[in-house]
């Protein structure tokens, strides 16, 4: 589904990613772990197509299509979803309005019929119920006045509504207590299916106790230094990233 080949990227002229290779198939969950400053968040932003993150070499294929030149909204339409490390507040725009705009924009992009108000609200109610989210959250402005945990749950709700093919969770566990972490992980697990894939980006192993990965990759200095099964995460938890602190030979 996702095929990244020899990806190099820079931010403000500074080279951050230095040749990433990564393949994720349908139904798989991959985790990328690494120390601070290793390029984890850069990878997430590059996948989502953020301005200022420039791909200098290599390619990103998604469902067989080169997406590296697409705008962020086009990538979203293709089915890439980024759960943000720090979800942004948008004052005055209610969650319902936002989700409806987003979903219909994506449907339009894919040439699907847009949902009318009734259909949308019905679908939305279903999702909130499924995830155990209270309806009053829908009337509030996007992330405004939300606690850290609420913001992350809101991202999960968005993910459920938009139903992406690939969800990239960028340090979604940061700042969450254990209860919130479990709720978020439950939400993600509910959305797991054989038709979609998940890329979990995290510094710590603890999230992976709840979202169990098929593969774990260690990112350091802009490269994937090692890949393995879920046991690799436990090893990192125990030993830390000291082994990966040096520049590549």
């Amino acid at each position: 589904m996702l095929e990244i080949k020899n990806l190099h990227a820079e931010v403000e002229g500074k080279s951050i990613l230095k040749g990433i290779n990564l393949t994720i198939n349908k139904g798989e969950v991959h985790a990328i772990m690494g120390p601070n400053g290793s390029g984890k968040s850069t990878l997430a932003n590059v996948l989502a197509g953020r301005d200022d993150y420039e791909v200098t070499e290599g390619s990103i294929f998604f469902d067989g299509k080169d997406i590296s030149e697409l705008e962020p909204e086009e990538r979203a339409g293709e089915g890439i979803f980024l759960a943000f490390q720090y979800p942004v507040e948008i004052p005055g725009v209610t969650n319902t309005t936002f989700l409806k705009e987003a979903l219909n924009a994506q449907r339009k992009y894919r040439g699907e019929e847009e949902l009318d108000g009734m259909e949308f609200v019905k679908m939305l109610r279903g999702k909130t119920k499924e995830l155990g989210i209270k309806d009053d959250m829908l009337k509030r402005a996007v992330n405004v006045g939300f606690s850290g945990g609420e913001k992350k749950r809101n991202d999960i709700l968005q993910m459920a509504v938009l139903n992406p093919k690939l969800a990239v969770l960028d340090e979604t566990d940061s700042g969450l207590d254990i209860d919130a972490l479990r709720i978020v992980a439950d939400g993600v697990n509910k959305l797991r299916s054989e038709n979609n894939a998940i890329l979990v980006i995290t510094h710590y192993q603890r999230l992976l106790n709840y979202i169990v990965p098929d593969q774990v990759h260690v990112l350091a200095h802009g490269e994937i230094r090692r890949s393995g099964g879920k046991e690799l995460a436990l090893e990192l938890e125990e030993k830390g990233y000291a082994d990966y602190s040096g520049e590549a030979a």
Binding site: D51, E71, G77, F98, A102, A105
Partner: peptide
Amino acid sequence: EDQLFYCRQRGISEED
């Protein structure tokens, strides 16, 4: 810029 990117990542065009 962060708000705009957030919206675009959810599929909304820049102008919208």
